[in-house]
Computed example of a mutant assay.
Amino acid sequence: MTRLYASLDDDELFAGNDADEFSSILKRERDSEDIDHFRFKLYRGPAFISELLQVIPNAHYYKRGTYDLKKIVEYAKKQDFTSLIVVHTNRREPDALLIIGLPDGPTAHFKLSRLVLRKDIKNHGNPTSHEPELVLTNFTTRLGHRAGRIIQSLFPQEPNFRGRRVVTFHNQRDYIFFRHHRYIFETKESKQSDSKGKKGKDGKGEKISQQKVIARLQECGPRFTLKLRSLQHGTFDTKGGEYEWVHKPEMDTSRRRFFL
């Protein structure tokens, strides 16, 4: 189950769901399977990819080497992968994600920032192999709904709730905040009080304790922020590809105008 929070009063927002590129995956007609690539030896890149593989079930890692991205796309199609994720780096630091839906696109380019690895998160938890629940919040526009569907297609549509894992993509002012948590249930004892505010006692004068279950979240990591830079029809093509949407610097002049 995926929880996608959007504006439900616009029927046109959801009208194309049955016919878009992700419908076969999200209807479970095809199993979601992802492939990750990166090219260079990175400083935090290998650790980030390792944690990303633990977030996205059925994901496989392949070193890109010097292969052209178009050839990688064709190879992934033949292997029946549903998505291709490319981790881009700048000065040995991950700074962008390219998500390509297979076999027919679209291609989304996200800027990646504020990356925090698991080891740097205080009191972090370790995720299990259970398939997580996916929560998408505040993707309220047509473009936002489209971006949400791209993200949704990366994850299986039948989470295993026994694992108590939840992956969240929260859109706020066109910045998509990623968090990965697990639920923790703790049993604590509390002293029972009577109606007058005095501590309750049994017939022998001993204090009565009562157990209650407290739920909390433990972050598993990684933690990062995404910002959509472009959305392209079809698979990756920098020369002849058509773009559904491209971010331009002049779009940032108004603080009240948002696109997702």
Results as ranks from 00 to 15, higher is better:
Asp10Ser: 02
Asp11Glu: 11
Leu13Ser: 01
Asn17Val: 07
Ala19Asn: 11
Lys27Gly: 03
Arg28Thr: 09
Glu29Arg: 15
Glu33Gln: 14
Phe38Asn: 11
Tyr43Lys: 14
Ile49Gly: 00
Val55Met: 07
Pro57Ala: 07
Tyr61His: 14
Gly65Lys: 08
Leu69Met: 13
Lys71His: 13
Val73Ser: 05
Lys77Leu: 06
Leu84Val: 08
Asn90Ser: 02
Arg91His: 07
Leu98Glu: 14
Gly101His: 07
Gly105His: 01
His109Thr: 00
Phe110Arg: 04
Lys111His: 03
Asp120Glu: 15
Leu134His: 00
Thr140Arg: 13
Leu143His: 08
His145Asp: 07
Arg146Cys: 01
Ile150Gln: 01
Pro156Ala: 11
Pro156Val: 04
Phe161Arg: 07
Arg164Val: 02
Val166Trp: 07
His170Ala: 14
Ile176Arg: 01
Phe178Ile: 03
Thr187Leu: 05
Gln192Asn: 06
Gln192Pro: 06
Lys196Thr: 13
Gly203Pro: 01
Glu206Leu: 13
Lys207Arg: 10
Val213Thr: 15
Ile214Asn: 12
Leu217Asn: 10
Glu219Ile: 07
Thr225Asp: 11
Ser230Pro: 01
Leu231Ile: 02
Leu231His: 04
His233Gln: 02
Thr238Met: 09
Gly240Glu: 03
Gly241Ser: 06
Glu242Pro: 01
Glu242Asn: 08
Asp252Lys: 13
Asp252Val: 12
Arg257Val: 09
Phe258Val: 03
